[in-house]
Design a protein around this nucleic acid. Structure first.
Lengths: 111, 111
DNA sequence: GCGACAATATACATTATTTTATTATGAATA
DNA sequence: TATTCATAATAAAATAATGTATATTGTCGC
C-alpha cells in the first residue's frame, strides 16, 4: 500500500515535478548550443551587449547569429532594446541568470 | 588598437571560453531532455537509485529508459554499480550535481 | 552445472522531428 | 543610400521516438 502510484498526493507531486522538468529542460535546451551559450556568457553579468559586439565572439554568418538570437528571444531568455541602428540585448530571465552563474563557477572557475 | 582580435591574451581567453562553452553545452544537452532530467532529479540528492526505481517515474518502455540511461552514462553524468540483478546509478559529476541543485532552486523552489 | 526466470543493455530499423547553413530579401534608421 | 539587424524559404543533416528482437548477467531451484 505504500505505493507511489496509489498515493494521490505523491502523484500530484510527481506530476508537478514532471512539469518542472519539462520547463527546465526546455530552457536547458535553448542554452545547450555552443554558440548560444557563448552569447549568453557575454550577457551573464547582466549587462547589455549590441548585436555587433556579440558578433565578434562567434564566427557565425550574420543571419545565423540573428537566428540564434531569435531562439533565445522566443524562449524568453533575452530581451532586446533598439537604440538607433543598434539592438542591445540582455538576459531577461532570472532563472537563466542563475544557471549561467553556476555554469561559470563550474566550468570557468579557478582550478 | 584596443581590439580583441589583435590582443593575444584576450584571444587565448576567448578560445578558452569557447572551449568551456563547448564542454558546458555538451553537458547541458545531455540534461536538456525531459525524461533524462527527471532521471537526474531522482539522483540529485546524491543517492543511488536502481533502474527499477527510476522506471517508476518515467512511463518509458524499458529499452527507451535504458537508452536514456546510456546517454547519461556515456556523457559521464552518472555511474552504475551492479548489485545482483540490479544496477544502481548515481550522479558521478560534481558539475552536474551543482547544476541540478540550481535547477531545483529555480524551478522547484518555494513561490 | 542446467534450465527457467528476472533485470538490464544493446542492436536495429523506421519514421518523424529538429537543427543548421545558405541565400535572398525586408525593415528601420542614420 | 549605406548600415544594422531580422525574417523567410529551403535543402541538407542530425537527432529523436518508437518498436521489436536479442544479448548479457545474475538468481534460484534442482
Amino acid at each position: 500500500m505504500n505505493n507511489v502510484i496509489e498515493n494521490p498526493t505523491l502523484m500530484a507531486n510527481a506530476e508537478a515535478l514532471r512539469q518542472n522538468a519539462r520547463d527546465a529542460s526546455q530552457m536547458l535546451k535553448a542554452m545547450s548550443h555552443p554558440d548560444r551559450l557563448m552569447l549568453l556568457c557575454q550577457l551573464a553579468d547582466g549587462a547589455e551587449r549590441s548585436v555587433s559586439e556579440l558578433e565578434e565572439l562567434t564566427d557565425l554568418h550574420q543571419p545565423s547569429l540573428s537566428q540564434q538570437i531569435g531562439v533565445l528571444r522566443r524562449e524568453g531568455l533575452i530581451e532586446g532594446r533598439r537604440d538607433g541602428k543598434h539592438m542591445f540585448y540582455r538576459v531577461a530571465d532570472a532563472r537563466a541568470l542563475a544557471i549561467l552563474q553556476t555554469l561559470y563557477e563550474q566550468f570557468c572557475g579557478a582550478p
